[in-house]
Amino acid sequence: MNDSFRSQNKPALLKVQNLTIELTTRLGTAPVIDDVSFELHEGETLCFVGESGCGKSMTALALMGLLPEKVSRIASGSIEFNGVDVTQASADFLNQLRGNELSMIFQEPMTSLNPVFTVGEQIAEVLRHHQGVDKSTGVKLATQLLDQVKIPEAHRRVHSFPHELSGGQRQRVMIAMALACQPKLLIADEPTTALDVTVQAQIFDLLDELQKEHNTAIMLITHDMGVVAEMAERMVVMYAGRKIEEGPVDEVLQQPAHPYTRGLIACVPHLQAFMHEERVPLLEVPGVVPSLNQFGGNQCLFADRCDQVNERCLNNRPENKYTNQRSVACWYPTAEGVFL
């Protein structure tokens, strides 16, 4: 099965093909990522959505080569970044790649910064490692980066410790660190869940601006459909380790094909252009994400939460159906006229 239904002149920056990652727990071995394929081009933003435990963050860790050792392994598939298969690469090569061409912003800025070093030293470390600059140049460049991510009084802040900064500023430091070497691909794993909406808006504006400037590809992991709508061009919906829907954001939001995607959109009370007096009950997706030992079964894993389930869903894993721009993994997709 080939996922190259997007025809573009340039080859994709990132090409993930039939990636399967197995995780071993006390309950046995299960595929946390199950046959996932996608592509990401330069300057593009791709959003990954889904509830927690659906494999969004695992996908990101796999791309970075940061999968938890011993308990997890890449069972099959390939991750091609810039034409090189990362899954086969040596540790040295990965170290060269990470933080340089490939970097990541984590969810919790407090726990991912080192509390005993100043933020300047931490940013400079990236530059010293990858570009071989000396200590004082490193700090100078760090100041410029902090200025670039709009931290006020950067020359003073560069000597601050993480605990002296507010949540929004810490996340900016993380962004500055991730962008220090002007990466080709930036992975942002729920970069704003710990932040207030006004700060979230600032961070997204910043990412947008920096993306335009450097033509960075961004892979954004979120569970907020509003964020998807504002930030991304394409989106991938994950459920229980599988990619269940993919397509251009506007199309998927208007005409979701998979019942889970539909549920994710309709279960959140969104702000509308004009508020109405009446309030309809929210659409519920009953139940929760299946536990790990149910992953990988030969059935639709969404079946027990789906309102249109039948025999076929319980006995056969739905194949990915493709159109020009979109794909869906459901036996009975709903977007009218798109999937036949």
């Binding site: 006004t198 808006a201 504006d205 709508a229 504002e230 506007d250 969104h270 702000l271 509308q272 252009a273």
Partner: peptide, 20 residues
């Protein structure tokens, strides 16, 4: 209110984002 990301395209067009 303007900082809340929205799936409603009409709202995104109508509401001017005010970044504090």
């Amino acid at each position: 209110l303007s900082a809340v990301p929205s799936v409603d395209r009409k709202r995104r067009e109508r509401v001017q984002r005010i970044v504090l």
